[in-house]
Every structure is written in C-alpha cells, then in structure tokens.
C-alpha cells in the first residue's frame, strides 16, 4: 500500500474567529513496508496530518492518493480506507467500552461486517500480536494496567487487519516498562507482519531507535524528511523549533568538539559505543587495565 500526499493544506474553523492553518502545503509519500517517525512540537500539525491518512480529516486543499486513487474525490469509500489504515489515537485506552477484552477487540472487525466467529478469530490473532494471551479474553478491560489497556486498544485496531498502522504518541504517559513493551510490539509487527508503521512521537530517543525515516513538522510544514542520521545533524534547527536530538547525538558532538574523530550523525547507543571503542583503539586494549589507574589520571589531559 502506498499513500501519496500532494500539496495538502488544512485549515481549522474556517471562517470563524479561531481560524488556524494547521497544515500548509504538505507533500510526501509513504511506501509500503516503511517505519516512519513523525516528530514535531505540540501544535505542529502532526496529529492533524495523520487524521488525513484515514479520511477523518477532510483536506481543505490538495490531494491524497491511496494506491493511486484520490480519497478526496466523491464516492471514495472512507470506511474501507479506515479498515486499511488503522489509526491508534493518543491515549487509546479511553476508547475502550466493552465488558470484556475480546468483545472490545471485536468491535472493529464486526463493523467490517464479519460474522462473530471470524471477528473473534481476527481479534484473537490481534491479541497475540500485542502479547495478550487467552487468559485476558474474558477479563474486563477496565481492570487492566495502563500499559495492558493500551495494548488492548492497539489490538482493537490490528483486528481489522490494516495494511498500515498509524499511532499518535503510543507511549505517552507510560512508564519505561510499558513503553518498551509497546515499542517492541511495533517493531515485531513491522518485521514479522510486514505492516507499514507510522509513529508520531515527541520522544527523539524512541524515533531514532525504531524508525528508518523521520519527518519533522513545524507550524504545519515539513521541515525535514530523511533518514534519522541526516535529520539529527540539524541539532540547532531542531532546537529552534522546540525539539532536540537524542542525547547520544549530543555526546558525539561534544566528543567531536574535543577533537575526537567520531561521526556526529550517530543516533543509537550501539553505534556510539562502536565508534568510541574504535577511537580508543579497540576495547580489548583496555581489558587488562585496572580501574585504580584511572582515578588520579587528571595529569594525563
């Protein structure tokens, strides 16, 4: 599945006192199988943008082509689109309403017109994908922990078998454990189920670790659209729009300033480790050294 957005603009509350241009001439293409991170400050338009992907927002101007067909044209079935592009809202656990987990996850497939049995089959599959075994099926979703509820909500979308999964800050408000679980689920879905993932986040660390392409939005415009290493070279510009690079990028920049021959485009920890080790002349060289020799080592500078 491919989504091509051309010159998309969106204006909130057109004709009222609160009129605001939320998206300004956006053009981009999402290819099947990508893992894209969209980052931007609160109010940069990222949530507005992703609600166009499944037709919840109607473009003020511009066009959106899904597999070549313009969804802005009359007669395009928005409902079918919603089943193909699964959109997980921020704090999705607030949309849970059924008495059992299984029933809630079935809501989407049933809306697709599936019979109970098929809907339940898809729901069960979706629950497995997010790591909820059958012991959860008959539990009340309201008794679960925050991280578990969120997985139920994501399963509710996955049960519709979307080709693309779009998530608005799926880790907001979770503790590190819950966050790792969710991001792990996304990575698995992308790798094993080959689902296209679009992840909206303001956590630079997460985006850098997981996405292979990053789109930076600011004031409704695309600021950057590139691989993480390239995007995070613009540390200064990112900071100007209220964002930051991952901490590891700053570390490498600091080392570079001290004359180290390391790349400052590093965005993940293992990369950083390897580069530093290389500069230090391989980790093995240190294996024999004791730590005592280090503490008084100021004179060496």
């Amino acid at each position: 599945m491919e989504i091509r957005i051309e010159n998309l603009s969106y204006i909130y509350g057109q004709g009222t006192a609160y009129e605001k241009k939320a998206l300004d001439n956006i053009s981009l293409t999402i290819h099947g199988g990508e893992f894209i991170g969209i980052i931007g400050h609160t109010g940069s338009g990222k949530s507005t943008l992703i609600q166009h992907l499944n037709g919840l927002n109607k473009a003020t101007s511009g066009a959106i082509y899904v597999d070549g067909k313009n969804i802005c044209e009359e007669g395009y079935s928005m409902r079918d689109l919603r089943f193909q592009v699964g959109l997980v809202f921020q704090y999705p656990e607030y949309q849970i309403f059924e008495t059992t987990v299984l029933k809630d996850v079935c809501f989407g497939p049933k809306n697709q017109g599936l019979y109970s049995e098929d809907a339940e089959k898809q729901a069960r599959e979706a629950m497995r994908m997010v790591g909820l075994d059958e012991s959860y099926e008959q539990k009340s979703p309201f008794d679960l922990s925050g991280g578990q509820k969120r997985r139920v909500a994501i399963a509710g979308i996955l049960a519709m078998k979307p080709k693309m999964l779009v998530l608005d800050e799926p880790t907001a408000g979770l503790d590190p454990k819950g966050r790792d679980e969710i991001l792990g689920v996304l990575r698995d879905l992308h790798r094993k189920q080959e689902i296209t993932v679009v992840l909206v986040s303001h956590s630079m660390d997460d985006v850098a670790d997981y996405a292979d392409r990053i789109i930076v939005l600011d004031k409704g415009k695309i600021l950057y659209d590139d691989v993480p290493e390239k995007v995070f070279t613009h540390v200064k510009e990112l900071e100007e729009v209220g964002l930051a690079a991952p901490q590891v990028t700053y570390i490498m920049k600091a080392l570079r300033q001290e004359g180290w021959d390391v790349k400052d485009t590093v965005t993940t920890l293992p990369e950083a480790r390897d580069q530093i080790l290389k500069e230090l002349g391989a980790g093995a060289a240190f294996a024999g050294r004791s730590q005592d020799g280090l503490t008084g080592g100021k004179a060496d500078d």
């Binding site: 901490q247 700053y250 570390i251 600091a254 080392l255 001290e258 180290w260 920890l269 293992p270 480790r273 530093i276 080790l277 500069e279 230090l280 002349g281 980790g283 093995a284 060289a285 240190f286 294996a287 050294r289 004791s290 730590q291 020799g293 280090l294 503490t295 080592g297 100021k298 060496d300 500078d301």
Partner: peptide, 30 residues
C-alpha cells in the same frame, strides 16, 4: 556499555561533560 566492552570508566556517570572528560583522560593516556 563502554565499560562492559572493557573501557575502564568510573560508575555513575550522569552528564555529557563527565563522560567526555573521562574519555578524554583515557584517550590522553593512550
């Protein structure tokens, strides 16, 4: 992670400044 790979850094480094300083010492003595 560096320590795990055998780099003799002290425990509990909290800031970028501390890390670059400690690494600088190591590099200097090489």
């Amino acid at each position: 992670m560096l320590k795990q790979s055998g780099v003799p850094l002290p425990d509990g480094i909290l800031t970028i400044g501390e890390l670059t300083e400690e690494l600088g010492k190591l590099k200097g003595r090489k």
